[in-house]
Structure formats: structure tokens, C-alpha cells
Design a protein around this nucleic acid. Sequence first.
DNA 1: TGTTTTATCGCAAACCTTTGCGACAATGTT
DNA 2: AACATTGTCGCAAAGGTTTGCGATAAAACA
Lengths: 331, 331
Amino acid sequence: MKPAATLKKISESLGISISTVSRALKNHPDISEATKKKVWDLSNLLDYEPNANAINLRTNHSKVLGLIVPVISGYFYDSLIASLEEETRLHGYSLLILQSGDDPMVELNNLKLCKQNRVAGVFVSLSTNTVEISPFKKLSDNDIPVIFLDKVPTDVDCNKICVADVAATTLAAEALVEAKKKNILGLFGNSKMSITQERKAAFHQFFAINAPKIKLQIADAINPMEAYQRTIDIWKQAKKPDAIFCMSDEILTGVMKAVQQLKLQLPTDLGIIAISNGFIPQLYYPEITYTETSGYKLGKLAYTRMVSCLAGSSFIQNLKVDAVLVRGGSL
Amino acid sequence: MKPAATLKKISESLGISISTVSRALKNHPDISEATKKKVWDLSNLLDYEPNANAINLRTNHSKVLGLIVPVISGYFYDSLIASLEEETRLHGYSLLILQSGDDPMVELNNLKLCKQNRVAGVFVSLSTNTVEISPFKKLSDNDIPVIFLDKVPTDVDCNKICVADVAATTLAAEALVEAKKKNILGLFGNSKMSITQERKAAFHQFFAINAPKIKLQIADAINPMEAYQRTIDIWKQAKKPDAIFCMSDEILTGVMKAVQQLKLQLPTDLGIIAISNGFIPQLYYPEITYTETSGYKLGKLAYTRMVSCLAGSSFIQNLKVDAVLVRGGSL
DNA sequence: TGTTTTATCGCAAACCTTTGCGACAATGTT
DNA sequence: AACATTGTCGCAAAGGTTTGCGATAAAACA
């Protein structure tokens, strides 16, 4: 029905100029108290809200940040997004969130949307198959900082923030040694993903150096269902593992389903440790021991990095959120 | 470094007018093929992307929708948000997502942000304690549709889209009767929330009418921990329930933790049914039987409703996503 | 040749806001 | 009385885009 109030409307109703209204609303010392009050009252009455589009156009600097992720819902991204949104909003920014569906083409299109909306900066967690990151670099040339999160390019020449894969894996491995496990099953995710490769390598390396006598068994599972099936299959073997290391929450859920079906008691029949965001482990009894790779913390860290980028810090940084061992009763 | 390309820059480089460039880029028939090609080539070279702020200002009609939710991460909202984002993006819109943290003041501020950004419409899932919904109604007066999702006001005079609380509850209750359960524990959430009240009322009503002889036991739990504790406590009683109805995923997780601790076998020792988004039930073995209240479906439905509102449909609608029973092995 | 059509393009206003600068009157200073 | 200061306010340009309308020249017609 009624279009939104504007400075012009207020100025006309009050018989004063637009610039006076504008200054009055931002408490400019040039404007008399009497005028300010008149303007204030009327703008309240009309529910005036400044048009962000006009401001952005005029000032050439928007208060919106872009975020591109493969998916919103899931084991990790929801908490990452939640903390990022909270942080940005608390600092006067808003977050434009876009899903790529793990599709590089959609991802590129989302990047376009960010450009069109003239976002001040963009966070991006790459899709699995993204190879071409030059479009992202072009943004940096236009003075729009780009910060890669979690799923980052191998290219060294960009801002990256990741979870500490090696530290998290090592921490878990140490706990396994400390628990005196002798026959460990390591379950890993999609082996094409760099995160899988890094965690698997760290896993191997730790035991090779620190506990070469421990028997290792490695399996890949592309989703929870496969993790479930692997566990079931392996339990048909004569010699069963005395502990399972789960690379991720997805793996953990599959394994735990098998554990329930096999009626295994934790930690007596079997020890379990995982790398996790923290939500899944506390669903079970006993709660699962895990090393935390927190999406929440990653979001916080990413935002502070964005702030310094926006402030002009042009040097590249490769940050990691620390990993911490959270002891449940499963090991 | 380099500011973004504009129509003006292209026009100056080519020695033609801004309007010609504008028309060329949108394939206007007035422009010759030769000119179009020149413009096209240069705009590609310069990575030109139209300035959405300028367009919104000029056309007075933005391609951004607002979404205000209590939280992003959780049992339900992540999937709702995921489907809503997907739907909006596929139709050329973007989604500005704002968390209220279940705080009415923040919620109001988020609404302001939506106004300032001149969103085309807003979806909102109210915080628990929101009483004043007139600010939302004012938006509708300004021709920007407001659609309430899930957590909706009691006021009849607005667009609402909810899950079918009564149908979901009834469906679950029917399944309990069909499974010949005689002593049922109903576990419900925060009793201040309308969703709790509706589900509880439907629960009571169904049994009063259809199976008055079944023994009911009702308990409230404000979070998973309480649900866990209630279950543990009740299992110290002499006469134990033969089935538990869980009003929500939060309740279900608490109950299942107790079930694991008590080493109860499903469905022999105990039957379990829940109302759920679908993710949690398939974490367990056997999988939990549940009536689905899908955030995903709710998002889809909400978007189609938004479309018709944007197209001018001003009549009020109170839609519900259908509930469907998904049989696991827990009952 | 004179007139009308067609193809191609530019002018200018509008959307809303910010901001440097100048205008004007009232007050204060010598 | 002449001048400088201070307090209030308005003008106008700029930011990037869209679009109705008018302009120009070439092509088609009579």
C-alpha cells in the first residue's frame, strides 16, 4: 500500500530541506535541537528506516558480507554459519548466505551474486570439485577480501582458516595409545577430499613414529551407511579391533549404529574415539570421546580475520582453530 | 585496488552513451548487433556485474528475501533454512538470514535490518517470548509480505505455515494403539510454547476419545538433559511404561541416551515413537519410528506461498505441511 | 523529389542518500 | 559602526541504473 518513508517525504512534510533531515537524524551539531526533535518525532511516526541501497550506492561501501558453503544443514556447517552470522550481526554487518550444493557452477554463480550485491567481503567454503579459484582472486583485486574456510584451495596465496586436522588426529591417536589399544580400526571418509588425506596421513604417521607395534586397520566410507556396513563386516572377522577411530561425525554415526546393533558395550567391548563438532558424541551413552573441531570457533576466528582484512590488512594468513580433546566414556 | 566496472566506464571506453550500454547488455532490440558485441566483449573483459544497489534503488524492488529465526543450528532450522535458501536462489532471489537468539529485542532489530535492506519479503519464526507482532504487520502495510513459519503468533490475521501438529501427534498415537501399548509415557517440551500445548492437547484428546483405557503418564522436559533424567527416574518405578512418545527431536535424544544407559532393547523392552525432522531417528539401531514434520517441506511450502504473496495475493492463509508416519524398528 | 518508415542511439529524470560548501541572520567583538 | 564569529540551514553533485521520449540518419515508399 504505502511506500516506505524517505528523507524527502519527511523534509516536505516539515518544510525543510532533505540535507537538514539527514543531518538531524544523525545528530549533526549543525542542526538545532528544535529541528532535531521535529524530525525525530516525524521519522518515528512514519517508521522511517534509511534505505541501505541508497547508502551503499552513495558511500560505495556496504554492510553485507557474503558466505558461500556447500550445504547449510549438516554436521558442521550449521554451527559454523550460526557463529558467523552472530558475529557479523553483532558488529553491524549482515550475512548473505548462499549454498553451492557442492556444485562448482552454482558456486560461481553465488560469487556473482555477491559481486552484484557489492558485499564488503566474502567467506567461502569450496565445493569438493572446485578447481578454478581465479574468480575468487579477482574479487581480492577489487578490494573485496575473500576468506576461505575449512574447504580451502591448495593454493598458498590466499587467506585460509581451517580446523587443525593434524593436531586433532594426533590428539586422538595419543588418546588411543594412552588407553593401551592394540588393534585399531581407522575409518575415514571420501578419500578424494583433502581433509581425508590429511587426517589419514597424520594418523599413519603418528603410529609409525610413536607406536609402530600397534596393529592398524584402515577403511574408507563415503557416508554413514558405508561406515555402518564396514563395521558390521569387520565384526564378522575372527580378530576384532579393540578400538575404532572415526574421522568425522558422519563416520561416527554409522559406526555407532553398528555398535548398537552388535550390542557392544563401550568402552569394555570396544573403545571409540572420533573427530567431531561435538553434537553427535553427546547423543550416546556413554558419551563419545572426541577431539573437537568446532565450527563455532572457526566462525569466530574467520570473522576476526575478516575484520582485519576490511581494515586493510593485505597480508595472507593461514590460521587454524585449535583442537581439544573432550573425554567421554567411550574409550 | 580497482573499483568495480560500471555502465559509465564501459560507455566512456566505447564512446557511446550509458543507456545504449544498458540496453545492449539486456539485449534490447533497439541496439545493433555490432554495438551489442562491442559492449558484450568489453563487459566480459572488465568482469562487469550490475550494481544491485543501484538497480534496487531505481526499480524500487529488490531480489532479496529476509529470514529471521531463533537459531540457525539445531534439530529443525538448519533443514528449513537449507530448503528456503535453495528455493529462493533457484528463483533468482537471495536470502538474508538473521538469528534472533530467541530474543524479542534482537528479533525486532533484525526486522529493522530487513526494512533497511528493502527486502522484497520476510519469513519469520518467532522467538519464544515475542508478544508484540504489530511491527511485523506494519511491514505488510508497506507491501512487503510477512510469512510466519513454525513458531507463529496466535493472531489469526496473518500468513502462517506450520507443521501439522495435531495430525503428527494423532498419527503417532494411532501407531501406539496399533502396537497395543498399554502404559504410555508422553514426554513433552517447554510447556510455555504453543507447539507443546497443541501437541499435548492432541495427545490427550486422541486417547480420551479412542483408547480411554490406555494408561497415560505425562512429563515435561525443557531440554534433552531433562528428558534423559525423567526417563531414568521413571525407570526406577515399579510399573514401567511399555512405550514412550517423544514430542520432538530434543526429547528423543535425551530419552535415547537413557535407553542406552538402561540397556533397554527396542522394541521388546520398550517401544519408542517420536515427532521428528527425520535426522535423529536414523542414528539409532533400530531406527526410531516417527511422524515426520519436515523442515525441508516447510521451507518449500513457505516459498511458494511467498511467491503468491509477491504476486499480489493478499488473502491470509494458514497452511500446514502434512505429517507422515515413517516406520523404523522401535515400536 | 518529397515523405514516411525504420533502425539506432542519446538526453534527462528519477530512485535515496551523503556531504562539501556557501548563504544568511543573529550575535559578539573592537 | 564595521567587522568577525557563530549557529542553522539549503544547494547541488555524486553514486549506478532504468526508461520514456525525442533525435538523427538511412532506407523505403510514393
